Simulated scan of single mutants.
Amino acid sequence: MDNSDNTAGDGPAGDGTARRRKRGASMGDVARLAGVSAQTVSRVSNGYEGVVETTRQQVLAAMKELGYRPNSAARALKSGRFHTIGVITFNLSTTGNTRTVEAIATSAAQEGYATTLLPVAVPTQDSVRGAFTRLGELAVDGIVILMEVHLLDAATVALPPRTHVVVADSNAGDRYRVVDTDQAGGAHAAVQHLLDLGHRTVWHVAGPAESFAAERRVTAWRDALRTNGRAAPEPLRGDWSAESGYRAGTVLADQPDCTAVFVANDQMALGVLRALHERGRRVPDDISVVGFDDIPEAASFLPPLTTVHQDFSEVGRQCVQSVLQQIRNDQEETGTTLVATRLVVRDSTAPPPIS
């Protein structure tokens, strides 16, 4: 009986194929099938330029046929690069942080980098040090920190050696590269808009005192009023939530001389609008309201909210570009990059009522 058809796969070639399938194809296997050197396979798998296109396609076809997957761990050990960016954030419940993290992950992926997210539930110096330690164990090339609170000033945190850092929303530009929204410019535009409509002054619902962004907006609000020779009422404090905005709105509703209010974010502005409505203060007929963020729902508030637009996608993109530049140049950088804001005028602002 002729067993040649049954034993063809049991010869040397067949054994080699079986062994490759069991252990996984190697770079040498790809090189032999493609008829090129292992160095050429390495250059193709690492995306290097300078490989003739026909040769590149030949290598890619061999990789596909053999099911070859480059060993990224081995490459990382050899090059010292892990193609991963760590992200530390202290509050994922805020619109700004959520959208910035999303933009960082998207931008990093477009550059061929993965992201490792470490949210810090309780903002203390020890918890941040712990996050840095964990990122060091996970092997990242750089870190983006979404920093909001004074307690966690970057200067107090001991960073792992040779770790490149970019900080969002911080005043640490003299120590690290910072990417931030132009908080002051946006707040000034909001206040100036209300004054130009004819309001004598502008009240303010501020964010939490420990927030860098909130404090910059408070400072810009005061400066804009001072520049125009107007008195600044005592600001009311919130915690970024609509509930805290509602509480502030109940206070504002009882101020007969309040005709305009600048609210430090849109969620608190939503609470202010509700409180004013419940107390019979019409917006914008009696009181004009301006928010900050331009969240997607702002145009659907009642009335549609005039607000300061923040480009969170651009902040995230700039964070990634800044940390990659440091990685590629293998050097730390300092200074601050500001991403522009713009005022979006809708139906929640109007001239003050005629007294």
Score class of each variant (00 low, 15 high):
Ser244His: 08
Tyr246Asn: 01
Gly245Lys: 00
Asp254Tyr: 00
Asp266Cys: 12
Gln267Arg: 13
His188Phe: 07
Glu210Gly: 11
Gly186Met: 01
Asp239Thr: 02
Glu234Asp: 15
Asp257Tyr: 00
Arg247Asp: 13
Asn228Trp: 08
His188Trp: 05
Ala232Cys: 14
Asp239Pro: 06
Glu234Val: 15
Ser241Asn: 09
Ala253Ser: 14
His199Gly: 14
Thr250Tyr: 00
Ala190Tyr: 01
Val263Trp: 03
Glu243Phe: 00
Val202Tyr: 02
Pro233Asp: 05
Leu194Met: 14
Leu195Met: 13
Leu252Asn: 11
Val261Ala: 04
Ser241Glu: 08
Cys258Asn: 06
Gln192Ile: 09
Ala214Tyr: 05
Gln255Ile: 11
Asp254Gln: 13
Gly238Leu: 03
Glu234Gly: 11
Asp223Leu: 05
Gly229Arg: 08
Thr201Val: 12
Phe262Lys: 10
Asp196Gln: 14
Glu243Ile: 00
Ala187Thr: 00
Gly186Tyr: 05
Pro235Ser: 05
Asn228Thr: 13
Glu210Lys: 08
Pro235Asn: 10
Ala231Phe: 04
Arg217His: 03
Ala264Met: 05
Arg216Gly: 05
Ala248Thr: 06
Ala209Glu: 14
Gln267His: 13
Ala253Asp: 11
Val251Ala: 13
Asp257Trp: 02
Ser241Arg: 09
Leu195Ile: 06
Leu236Asp: 08
Gly186Lys: 01
Asn228Ile: 00
Val202Ile: 08
Pro256Tyr: 01
Ala209Gln: 13
Ala260His: 06
Leu225Thr: 10
Tyr246Met: 00
Met268Trp: 02
Arg200Asp: 15
Ala260Arg: 02
Gly207Leu: 03
Ala189Gly: 07
Arg247Phe: 00
Val218Pro: 05
Ser241Thr: 15
Ala231Asp: 15
Arg216Val: 03
Leu225Tyr: 10
Leu225Cys: 12
Ala242Ser: 14
Ser244Trp: 02
Ser244Asn: 09
Arg230Phe: 09
Gln192Cys: 12
Ala187His: 04
Leu194Thr: 01
Ala242His: 06
Ala214Ser: 15
Pro256Gln: 13
Phe262Gln: 09
Ser244Arg: 03
Ala209Thr: 13
Ala231Ser: 15
Val261Tyr: 05
Leu195Ala: 14
Trp221Leu: 04
Gly249Arg: 04
Ser241Phe: 02
Ala187Tyr: 03
His204Trp: 00
Leu236Ile: 04
Gln255Ser: 12
Glu215Ser: 14
Arg226Asp: 15
Asn265Gln: 06
Thr219Gly: 07
His199Arg: 11
Ala206Ser: 15
Ala242Gln: 10
Arg216Gln: 12
Arg222Leu: 12
Glu234Phe: 06
Asp223Thr: 09
Ala190Met: 06
Gly245Pro: 02
Val251Pro: 01
Ala260Phe: 00
Gly185Asn: 07
Ser211Pro: 07
Gln255Leu: 15
Ala264Phe: 05
Leu197Trp: 08
Cys258Arg: 01
Trp240Asp: 06
Val202Asp: 11
Tyr246Trp: 09
Pro256Arg: 10
Thr250Cys: 14
Pro235Tyr: 02
Ala253Ile: 09
Ala253Trp: 08
Asp257Gly: 04
Thr250Arg: 15
Glu234Lys: 10
Ala231Ile: 07
Tyr246Pro: 02
Pro235Val: 03
Ala189Asp: 14
Arg222Ile: 10
Leu194Trp: 04
Tyr246Glu: 09
Gln267Pro: 00
Ala209Val: 13
Leu225Pro: 11
Val205Ala: 03
Thr201Trp: 03
Glu215Cys: 13
Trp221Ile: 01
Glu234Leu: 12
Ala209Asn: 08
Ala220Ile: 04
His199Tyr: 07
Phe262Arg: 09
Ala232Gly: 09
